[in-house]
Amino acid sequence: MDRKVIFKGRALPMLLLLPQLAVTLVFFIWPAAMAVWQSLLQEDAFGLSSTFVGLENFADVLADPAWRGAAANTAVFASSVAVLALGVALFLAVQADKAIRGQRFYRTMLIWPYAVAPAISAVLWLFLFHPSIGLIGRALNAAGVLWDYQLNGSQAMLLVVIASAWKQVSYNFIFFLAGLQSIPKSVLEAAAIDGARPLRRFWTVVFPLLSPTTFFLLVVNLVYAFFDTFGVIHALTKGGPGKATETLIYKVYVDGVDNLNLGSSAAQSVLLMVFVIALTVVQFRFVERRVHY
């Protein structure tokens, strides 16, 4: 079913493309270009004048121990979020795939988190894990675990990881479930007859067949953890305690908006942009090369 629409002339297609191009231009290309330009400038302390400094901002950022700390936080944070979100989603998808009857129910239940705004989901987790008002937080303290993510950096990291991963599970789940359902049932039956028990079947047949999906999701999850988790961190920990949960994207905000160090903030965001572009390139390369079963 190839339903290609062929336009006569050029005016109409141009006109139809215009709104999207305009939006992209105004909300993406323009700010990105501004960021690149800004990253080459240095403002004076009062923000009244700026001078062109070339790549100095980048050199400063890369040498800054605070930035390196944030980078380390981000590495821990992003990989934890990706692993947790992928692992939980895969587990749930496998369960849902088994329980054919419950699928609709499962699917609906599991898609909800994706529709919840970051700040709201953060508040939800806050109600659960706050040391004095949170359900689980109080229970932990009552059980003798010293739980206070406002004081303990590791606990704070754990909390933002859980809250961020939770939101991504639904997205991953959908893809994993679709991936699982595209594996022919007879292939799994053949493996069962060949003598493979369920766990073995999973690791030697199901998981390899899901690997294109898994890789795609890994990149999506990393990008999510890098860029889309600002709201969760802002609402839960504000990068604290100390700088324990300050990720790169959060530091861009702190340096740019709180500290008004626009040059450095812009340089940091350009670095992030380069990183995500690199990830996307890897992704496309891989997807192209990768077989589709």
């Binding site: 022919p184 007879s186 292939v187 039956e189 053949a190 493996a191 047949v205 390899p208 067949l209 079963y293």
Partner: peptide, 10 residues
């Protein structure tokens, strides 16, 4: 032996 062969694609 299955009708669609059910070979392991990977």
């Amino acid at each position: 032996v299955f009708q669609n062969y059910a070979l392991y694609p990977h």
